[in-house]
Design a protein around this nucleic acid. Sequence first.
DNA 1: CTTTCTATAGACCATATGGTCTACATCGGG
DNA 2: CCCGATGTAGACCATATGGTCTATAGAAAG
Lengths: 194, 194
Amino acid sequence: MVYIGQKKRMVTLNNRDSLLRSASLLFRQKGYHGVALAEILKAADLPKGSLYYHFPGGKRELATEATLSAGRIVERSVSRAFESAGSFAQGMAAFCDVVADRLRSESPVEACPVASILQASTSEPELRDAARTVLTSWSEGLVLQAARLGHPAPHDAADMVLMQMEGAWLLAVAEQSARPFERLGEMYRKGTGI
Amino acid sequence: MVYIGQKKRMVTLNNRDSLLRSASLLFRQKGYHGVALAEILKAADLPKGSLYYHFPGGKRELATEATLSAGRIVERSVSRAFESAGSFAQGMAAFCDVVADRLRSESPVEACPVASILQASTSEPELRDAARTVLTSWSEGLVLQAARLGHPAPHDAADMVLMQMEGAWLLAVAEQSARPFERLGEMYRKGTGI
DNA sequence: CTTTCTATAGACCATATGGTCTACATCGGG
DNA sequence: CCCGATGTAGACCATATGGTCTATAGAAAG
């Protein structure tokens, strides 16, 4: 429970956030259709009533919000990694380190939030919109960073990085290790990146 | 029904293959957990009995075989694209064209067979093995091509290409267009690839 | 105290799902 | 003509799933 603003109005951000966090984690592990509501509810230790109170749209809405929320977290992580970089390649190397560290602490190694939701986008169009929104937002952030750091073709750089990141994430899930990000980071340090 | 070899033994490869094809298509569209057996059966126009005769292991076995089979198809496609290439970058550009062409003919644009199965690998470990097998096999093929074409770091090249391809495929699904592969191909032509 | 609004609690339901099992069709060989 | 092998047909089942609905708890406001 958390008091918001100066009003004494009590807002249960905790439980809503708890649902988002549990959902995000489970979706990344098993994909949208691979997770049952009961499982999310159990992880968050909340009854069904809470879920449908906070997310009247049910599983779809929960997944959408969880994806957008996870997307923002990754985005902040990108900004932070690039902040102190002297070049685009340095920024990428730093970001790869951050993701690799993160993945090393996960078992199983979880998929990219976007990838985990995208699978279901054929049956749930709303999810594709969420995935697209996040990817667009990541791309824009990367374009800005590339431009700021003097990259000659910021748009190409952003596209390429997005591909490499998503690909590396998929390989990491397959191998259940952070190696792909370590190797990608190394390549950027060697100057073999984009 | 198809006669195989000179023996007059009748082998119903058709129905088994039909199941594999329908399954592969649907899994790529909706992911492993997003497809019901009934749907696959309907697409192949076969009853449940046939499925469990050809694949006693049920959905898992069907998905495993479908993934391995689809993996081999992609692998042959890679070999063909690189065959007449004068450099690794040229081969990649050619392969991007092939995939882009292919995706343009699909609606919806379907995910990579590996990606579509990998989501479910947490609950179905057998699927992770299939995904890994395919990825390893692709990687080995790419290493050979890179070495043959005189790439200075064949292993790095293969890794990088795998990341870019999987990433581009994910972006293509999100955008529902072949653009990502067109752009990746362009970059290889411009020499901005690996 | 009572009312009202927020949020939790979970029983309940229609439907979908993967899987099993028995019956049967077809065909080559004896 | 029958027989065994291969493969098809689909009824049937236990279970799981997303979603709805009513009841209730607790704080804030009057």
